[in-house]
């Protein structure tokens, strides 16, 4: 297996990353996989523990978000696959990249923070290097070129 991985969270901040991934898929003719990771960290500040029901709901929501993303890609003539995982986003991206022996992983930059926040940029580059080390996939940043 091979292909491109694009982790999607939904919302306007994800759109440039999705666009970049679609462009890359068109260029390389590789299969594009959109990844949505269900993470329940937000529950740590409440007193809720019914995680199985919430996981189900977020799973459904993730499927829908990926469906809207896949529709967007389809309109541009790109066929895609949707993958849903549970857990830590960073770990799941690396895991999937290793599993499918991905050629590329497209990472997004927080909107409006590309130049302003050196710290965030540094962290993303650091994460990109880790993915490359662990899986051998090349990293493409939505706002720039390969790392």
């Amino acid at each position: 297996m091979s292909g491109i991985i694009c982790a999607v969270r939904g919302g306007p901040a994800s759109q440039p990353t999705i666009e970049k991934a679609i462009d890359l898929a068109k260029e390389t003719n590789l299969l594009l996989r959109f990844l949505y990771v269900v993470n329940l960290d937000f529950l740590s500040h409440t007193q809720i523990s019914r995680t199985s029901m919430i996981l189900d709901e977020l799973n459904q929501m993730g499927e829908f978000i990926l469906l809207t993303t896949q529709e967007k890609a389809k309109r541009q003539g790109v066929n895609t696959e949707a993958v849903i995982r549970h857990g830590n986003v960073r770990e799941e991206i690396i895991e999937l990249a290793k599993e499918i022996e991905a050629d590329y992983v497209v990472l997004g930059l927080p909107v409006g923070e590309k130049e302003k926040n050196v710290f965030i940029m540094e962290r993303i580059k650091e994460f990109g290097n880790l993915i490359e080390e662990e899986s051998g996939a090349k990293i493409v940043l939505s706002g720039g070129d390969e790392l």
């Binding site: 969270r9 939904g10 919302g11 937000f42 409440t46 977020l58």
Partner: peptide, 17 residues
Amino acid sequence: ASANMVTAGIADAAGYK
């Protein structure tokens, strides 16, 4: 309210903070 936190958490998971 706890309901606010839950709503915000799920909205954030969909990319809307």
